[in-house]
Amino acid sequence: MNAQAEVRQFLVTRRARLTPETAGLPTATGRRRVPGLRREELASLAGVSVDYYIRLERGNLSCASDGVLEAIARALQLNDVERAHLFDLARAAQARAPWQSPRSTLRPGLQAMVDAMTGVPAIVRNQRLDILAGNRLGRALYSELYRAPARPVNLARFAFLEPRAHDFWVDWPEAADATVGVLRTEAARSNDPGLTSLVDELCARSEQFRARWAAHDVRLHGAGTKQLNHPVVGSLEVQYETLQPPIDPGLTMHVYTARPGSASALALERLTAWSLDQLPEKDSTHDRNEDLGA
């Protein structure tokens, strides 16, 4: 991805959502030609010259200090995730680390930990949103994704290219927003050409993805709640927590639980029984792929 273009579009879209009123400026008189704050207004709020801010908004963050970035983040009223994204973009503009292909398999220790978690669904994904591994209950939870033989299973492709996704997620628009936001965040941290290819594919094949990608919204999947229409056990509400193993950069583990005593907890028990009867201990199609990271 073009680092300068990413910077430019992110700053422009963030500036466009502010108004003089929300920024604490005097209410403007007369018609404004563009939505949001003017560049000179944003520069004034950040305490930098207009010319300097224009250079920043053109994508030239290579010499921007942390102090300047903090000032821009405050002026744009960025939330914590957006602020981190701005710093990721700045690091990308300054120097790209040599590209390393994402792992196609898990370390034996990490795989063993996933397999040992038999009472809760667990999956591990990479920055492309490929599901690289899941315990049996994790694969049961996402059984709709595993219906297709292609591996690795990809959360973004399922969300935007598979019509069944609209039924699987109770609130598909929110799931779609979150998926794109996470991909956008990961793209700023990685120079993985496979991630770029995935984004290009989805932009070409899905108008819904293309519109969301153009918005430059970013997300982190730390913790929250998912509501699913599961084909086996029906309505299901699960809470998720994410873990990022320190020695496995780019990998994220998602673990799902249900509130004890709830209808969803009973549904997970039924799903456990179904998985033991219907699913193999390992995903048998996983080993057919010569390169899961490609």
Rank of each mutant, 00 (worst) to 15 (best):
R205C: 00
R8P: 00
A273D: 15
V218C: 03
F168V: 04
Q100R: 12
W274F: 12
A122M: 07
L18F: 07
L110G: 03
G119K: 15
A112Q: 09
V120N: 13
S62C: 13
Y53C: 12
P280A: 15
G138M: 14
Y142D: 04
L25H: 04
A258V: 10
A294G: 03
E82Y: 10
K226A: 01
M113Y: 05
L183V: 03
V233C: 03
P102I: 07
D115Q: 13
Q127R: 12
E162W: 05
R14K: 06
L266K: 11
D115E: 15
P246R: 11
T285N: 04
P98G: 09
A188L: 04
R91N: 06
V48Q: 11
L110P: 02
V48I: 15
I54C: 01
A3E: 15
D88S: 13
G222V: 08
L236R: 01
V199C: 00
T272I: 03
T257A: 06
G293D: 01
A176N: 10
A263H: 05
P173M: 14
P149Y: 06
L279Q: 09
S190T: 09
P193C: 07
L137T: 10
V232Y: 03
F87L: 13
T22I: 07
V120K: 13
V114I: 08
R151H: 03
V170Y: 06
R38Y: 02
V232D: 09
R288G: 04
P108M: 08
W169D: 09
L279F: 06
V182T: 04
G234I: 06
R270E: 10
A75F: 09
A116G: 13
R17K: 08
G36I: 02
A204W: 04
V124K: 05
A92P: 00
S104D: 15
L42S: 05
V81D: 13
V232W: 07
N154R: 02
I72P: 05
R157E: 10
A204C: 06
L268I: 06
H216C: 11
E207M: 12
P193G: 05
W99C: 15
L292P: 07
L86I: 11
G36C: 02
E21K: 07
F158G: 00
E186Y: 04
E237K: 11
R128H: 05
R39C: 03
N2R: 09
L42M: 11
V48N: 06
S62F: 14
A92S: 12
R212G: 05
A211S: 15
D283R: 03
A16F: 02
I123H: 05
D287V: 10
Q9K: 12
A214S: 10
R31H: 09
V182G: 00
L243V: 08
A263M: 07
M253K: 05
F209H: 15
G67V: 06
R58C: 00
A150T: 02
L18R: 14
Q77V: 08
P246D: 11
V120I: 11
S65Q: 08
V50D: 14
R32A: 01
